[in-house]
Amino acid sequence: MNKLGRGHRDKVQQFMTITGASEKVALQSLKASDWHLDGAFDVFYSQPHPKSFTDTKHLEEMYNRYKGKLTINHPYADMIMADGISTLCNDLQVDPQDIVMLVVSWHMKAATMCEFTKQEFVGGLQSLGIDSLEKFRERIPFMRSELKDDQKFKEIYIFAFGWAKEKGQKSLALDTAIGMWQLLFEEKEWPLVDHWCQFLQARHNKAISRDTWSQLLEFARSVDPTLANYDAEGAWPYLIDEFVEYLIENGIIEKGRVM
């Protein structure tokens, strides 16, 4: 996209807005018609697209239903904001705090918590093959089940860090991190999660780095909750080392045994 000239770029944008097609498809169609918009539309609509069965018009309508109102506070709010999301949750009959909303955000590749840009929303639903609220609602149980898949869970876990942190920050505020962990590990059932959160509040009280975030999942997955196979000489982030010390100091864990 960046390699394109201004005129071409505008055409791609226009094409995508009208058809709801992805950037790739837009480029293909425009190139095929030698950058004539009308020709490109012909190309696009005359070809059977695997994703075109999602009715872009419906998606557009859905987006418009949730997108933020242009107010003085949000003059540029061409995106779905917190209010819209809570309406969406209502329509889906899902609690906004439900972890499945994280999975939804993951599918939409949302950059930030409580926000969907139009591209994220429309693109995400398209790739999920959803073009109506009905279908959306039907897909919720499937998305919930995706958390059970180890590989997907890991992707979602890693995604959650970037999604939850404040824009422009390198690390994740402790409160947010703790909230996310409690949410995620409820799913994954790591028995030490409460101790971990208590430890962080008592001893650390600082933001969490990306490295610590991703290593904690590794720790929860590979180290036995009794710490029997924990290697103090290993490369675990120091915060995790200190957590282990804390567990032993406080008699929560003793010689490979949960007290």
Partner: peptide, 10 residues
């Protein structure tokens, strides 16, 4: 050293 490594990662 470990802390410094983590800092350098950040």
């Amino acid at each position: 050293i470990k802390k410094r490594i983590e800092d350098l990662i950040t």
